[in-house]
Design a binder for these strands. Structure first.
Length: 487
RNA sequence: GGCCUCGUGGUCAAGCGGUCAAGACACCGCCCUUUCACGGCGGUAACAGGAGUUCGAUUCUCCUCGAGGUCACCA
């Protein structure tokens, strides 16, 4: 049978990385098996409708490379792919269950239930619906429905026996029916609940493998009662572990960088995010860590899925992103970096053709996340205040006195330079150090400090001088000398 | 609280009765070096605890502990 998987988000905002990973695994499993990956929008909760969230889902999936074969926008023979548009499909199935005695109409109002629940819980108990409306006669039910009384349809769970299912990762899961509540299948507004819609949709849409979060693990046996009632073949369930922020909290959107969009905006590359995400909760079994989507597709297997929750390691994502950046083509890197350089006020400097290569050379190996760039290069846009103590560096054998002497002798030479470019600057400065028997560092440290006001900079004195250009470089050097005048 | 699930270094994670218990990130040290990175080399660090089963348990069973999930007219 052809493998069909689905990703079924409820459109409530940005895409949490945990959801993205679920989508990824579902996509991988379908693609690995030459199957179909479909997108279904679960919007049965009208109260939670969020404008534009559906488009967000499309956009995220697309930039992540997870294209769907069937879905709301592309269609398919199992449509519609939006649950609210399937509204009319559910009631007949629910009625069928009622006929079979596997479900029943219930007229208890939400308020009554809430009250009873509160009372039970106040005494430390767990509320369970008492099947109150199960005993209603058919006539009474019909009468009340005809009278326009609001109702829901509940699943009639047996009071005895077991409900169970087999999970591809967790194995056999079994629970006593007595633990189960008569869950609502059809809500008072006529919409199905998630639980019911899922069963109906997954079956009618031919889903063969259900990949979803762990939170459904304990309610799945209850779904299977429904499959059994209808006599339907059950899909293979694959419950995925939760992605955690730390040992005791799951990664939440409130943490600020838990959505795909957050990460992209911070300057993470979609391919790196996907690659990292694939490895949170799944292992290829060998030592590979870098995968394209295609390679992932080859390597993916249900056996490699983990049973225990994994903590999202920003550190490792960062490293992996850096690794992706380093492997980028220089040009491509520059293109991605340019907006960030502009944001740092370096648009003009970066626009000079001769500077492009320098920027690539000094920044690419140092960029872990694109948003880092601004803080690393801001000194190029503006020289900040700095203390002359920065001129002291033991390893370079410099201090304010030495620096003063260095700047005094080197500034005129630089001013006299006919061409201001890296090669010329290099030959001049390195040549000078050599001729005077100095360590390169002794000469270059003061020059770099004066030009940057920073002890740590991307690139060295020569690159910085070239980027700054003759006028600005010299201005800063003289400024440095002034600062040192009193020494 | 009932029920379900999970438990290998700080983190991800291999292992699926016999290993000196991989690898990666992070951390530390050394080298390279024009600062910082990059790169190279090396290092610290783990089977939650206790009973069994077995010639032998990280691996199988049970208990304890710890953590998560679930008990909605939310998904």
């Amino acid at each position: 049978m052809k493998v069909r998987t689905r990703f079924a988000p409820s459109p409530t905002g940005f895409m949490h990385v945990g959801n993205l990973r679920t989508a990824l695994y579902a996509w991988l499993w379908a693609k690995k098996n030459d199957g179909v990956f479909m997108l279904r929008i679960e919007d049965t909760d009208q109260a939670r409708f969020v404008e534009g969230a559906e488009e967000m889902v499309y956009k995220t999936l697309r930039t992540a490379g997870l294209t769907w074969d069937e879905g709301p926008d592309v269609g398919g023979e199992y449509g519609p792919y939006v649950q609210s548009q399937r509204k009319d499909m559910y009631l007949p199935y629910a009625k069928q269950l009622v006929e079979m005695g596997k479900a029943y109409y219930c007229f208890c109002t939400k308020e009554e239930l809430d009250e009873r629940r509160a009372a039970v819980e106040a005494e430390g108990g767990t509320f369970k619906y008492d099947k109150h409306c199960l005993s209603l006669s058919k006539e009474e039910v019909e009468r009340r429905i005809a009278a326009g009384e609001p109702y829901v349809i509940r699943q009639n769970v047996p009071t005895e026996g077991k409900a169970d299912f087999d999970d591809a990762i967790f194995g056999h899961i079994e629970v006593d029916c007595s633990e189960l509540d008569d869950m609502i299948l059809i809500k008072a507004d006529g919409m199905p609940t998630y639980n019911f819609a899922n069963v109906i949709d997954d079956h009618t849409m031919g889903v063969t493998h259900v990949l979803r979060g762990m939170e459904y693990l304990s309610s799945t046996p209850k779904y299977n009662l429904l499959y059994d009632a209808f006599g339907w073949e059950k899909p293979t369930y694959v419950h995925l572990t939760t992605i955690m922020r730390d040992a005791t909290h799951k990664l939440s959107k409130r943490d600020g960088d838990a959505t795909f969009e957050d990460l992209v905006n911070l300057g993470y590359l979609p391919e790196a995010i996907i690659n990292y995400l694939a490895l949170v909760g799944w292992s290829p079994g060998d030592e590979r860590e870098f995968f394209t989507l295609d390679e992932l597709k080859e390597a993916f297997s249900l056996e490699g899925l983990s049973k225990s929750p994994a903590i999202f390691d920003h550190n490792k994502l960062r490293w992996m992103n850096a690794e992706y950046i380093r492997r980028m083509d220089g040009k491509a890197y520059f293109e991605k970096a340019l907006p960030w350089l502009c944001r740092a006020g370096l648009g003009e400097m970066a626009a000079k053709p001769e500077n492009e290569e320098i920027f690539i050379r000094i920044l690419q190996p140092r960029t872990e996340v694109f948003s880092d760039i601004a803080n690393v290069v801001d000194f190029l846009a503006e020289l900040g205040e700095y203390d002359i103590e920065l001129f002291t560096n033991k390893k370079s054998k410099t201090n304010p006195e030495v620096s003063k002497a260095v700047l005094e002798s080197v500034i005129p030479l630089m001013e006299a330079l006919p061409d201001w470019n890296e090669t010329a600057l290099h030959d001049l400065l390195i040549g000078y150090a050599e001729a005077n028997g100095m360590k390169n560092g002794t000469l270059l440290w003061p020059v770099r400090i004066a030009m940057s006001g920073r002890t740590v900079t991307p690139g060295g004195a020569i690159e910085i001088a070239a980027l700054l250009g003759r006028g600005e470089a010299l201005r800063r050097l003289k400024l440095g000398l002034d600062k040192l005048a009193a020494v």
